[in-house]
Design a protein around this nucleic acid. Structure first.
Lengths: 304, 304
DNA sequence: GTGCAAGATAAATATTATTTATAGTAAAGA
DNA sequence: TCTTTACTATAAATAATATTTATCTTGCAC
């Protein structure tokens, strides 16, 4: 009966008092009107007192409501101070960050991560250089870069690392394609299918080729049906029915959910890889680097 | 990403700092250890910063963690003040409360409601007198009582009322009884069944008899197999297989959920009724009465 | 190394909040 | 007085979140 009290509910309450209307508040907060009703009911039940006398046209605070309003304001003030101080602590984090990344992380993982990081720590300047996984690791080892992101966990005790994401190269087809119904195909069946690629000299493409050949599938013997300039373009082309393609599952989350493309298993082919954040433990001296690694850890902690 | 912040999470956080151990906190708060982990993770994600450096043996606050702790303490202080002031407002509510109630509300609804009310407003003295629904209404109308609870919504504009509960008289049998499998029986099938009753002169029993006879079912022609002194005793006897009985569904919630008895429909019999809280609008002058009615409204608002 | 203690994680489950659709209600206008 | 309107309340379904149980990982002590 004495359940948690949610700070959002308090904000809703404050807005109600300010605007004098449940539906206005709902509009303003981008939730439905019943949600506002329920939030008030929850507060009233938690406190065991009526907070608002609501008639059709007017909403008046009860004595208890007035008291709660003061509480809400006090909490709000404190919360703003907290926010401010934390910002402050983030501002203190400034400087340059030198990041080495291999293709997939550099293309799919880092853009989002870095955008959010920059928003939180605006004073930080970031440079990302893309190469392959082995180069990333050796550049971290020789101190050319401070942090690296790659598809190989480093050996040896000089480098620390943690997993940031799981990735799998998958075959995608457009939903009307015969493969879509089968769900799984054998490598032989792929021959003759119109394949869509990235440009042959792009990192993603080279990566793909080497990965597939490791699994015994040499895609170079297939003539590409279409060669495009970005992974997103490849996905769009598949969705449009122009052919089939191998892509990272990190690139197709949305398109899959929207049903624009279908994922098809290839028998005997398992191209899942983990990606790691790599750094030299003893290089973590700057607050910036420490903050960045903390940040990456927290933001990726939910990933399998 | 900037989701609600829960005051319970703050408390958990404070406890962690105090006890220095997730599992201890879990034990103390009566939740599982992973729940504590998750709460901390949620806070860290909301604030985008690491709050606790946790190694196997020790847990240390980060700078951000220290700041959050101060916030948590501030909120806690404010919450205690709020609590205190609301108690105060409740203390001011004192005096005598004269309640008239008909049998079912008096027996099933009010005990719980009044117990909680007394706990909140300890200074209040309550007297409940039980009679039948019509008497309740006329006693409210003539100002003998201040509030009434009965199974009839009053006519006329001098009395205000609102629904507090829905009740249905149902036939219950023990789970092994042939009726239990059928789920529905006709009134004729009831003849010869061992019926269990309350004493003939109890309010509940008289009520039941009149209700059933209104539906064309005269139970007085059946000889009771067993006569008991309380509704709970009747339910227990049915659960023990001593016979079948008509009872209010308000009395069997638990027993039903535990599978001790089964509810059986009787064809053509619909004995559902609503119960109301009744009062004279213009008599609500005392803070006590107002507080009581508010309280009842809030506590029963979830009822269909 | 082996075992232990403490936190992290995964998957399943329980709980809670929110939405959509609908009902109910007082006030305003015809 | 009847209808319309502009609100809030409610129900049922759904979505989102939190919690639990079971298991895993890891650093530390022995």
């Amino acid at each position: 009966m004495t359940t948690s009290m949610n700070i959002d509910n308090l904000k809703t309450f404050q807005e109600i008092v300010r605007l004098g209307s449940f539906s206005e508040v709902a509009k303003k907060l981008g939730i439905s009107q019943p949600a506002v009703s329920f939030q008030v009911q929850k507060l009233e039940q938690q406190l065991g007192m009526r907070l608002l006398d609501r008639t059709q046209r007017t909403i008046t605070l009860t004595a208890a409501g007035k008291r709660l309003l003061r509480f809400a304001e006090a909490v709000e003030t404190e919360r703003e101070r907290l926010q401010h101080d934390l910002e402050q602590m983030r501002e203190e984090i400034s400087g340059d960050l030198l990041i080495a990344a291999s293709t997939i992380p550099g293309e799919f993982l880092l853009p989002l991560l870095l955008a959010e990081f920059k928003q939180r720590y605006p004073a930080v300047k970031i440079q990302v250089d893309v190469s392959d996984s082995l180069t990333v690791i050796s550049r971290i080892r020789d101190n050319t870069y401070e942090v690296g992101f790659c598809g190989i966990a480093p050996e040896g005790h000089d480098l620390a690392s943690f997993k940031i994401a799981s990735d799998e190269i998958v075959l995608i087809v457009f939903p009307g394609h015969p493969f879509a119904r089968k769900g799984e195909v054998s490598p032989d069946e792929l021959e003759g299918e119109p394949l869509i690629f990235r440009e042959a000299n792009s990192g993603t493409q080279r990566n793909l080729e080497s990965l597939l050949s490791q699994s015994g599938l040499d895609i170079r013997k297939w003539v590409p049906n279409l060669v495009l300039g970005s992974s997103q373009a490849v996905v769009s082309a598949v969705a449009a029915g122009a052919g089939i393609a191998f892509v990272s599952n990190l690139a197709i989350k949305n398109s899959l959910a929207q049903g624009l493309v279908r994922q098809v298993k290839v028998k005997g082919l398992n191209l899942s890889r983990d990606f790691y954040c790599v750094y030299r433990q003893e290089r973590i001296v700057s607050r910036l680097l420490k903050g960045f690694i903390n940040y990456v850890q927290i933001e990726t902690s939910h990933i399998g």
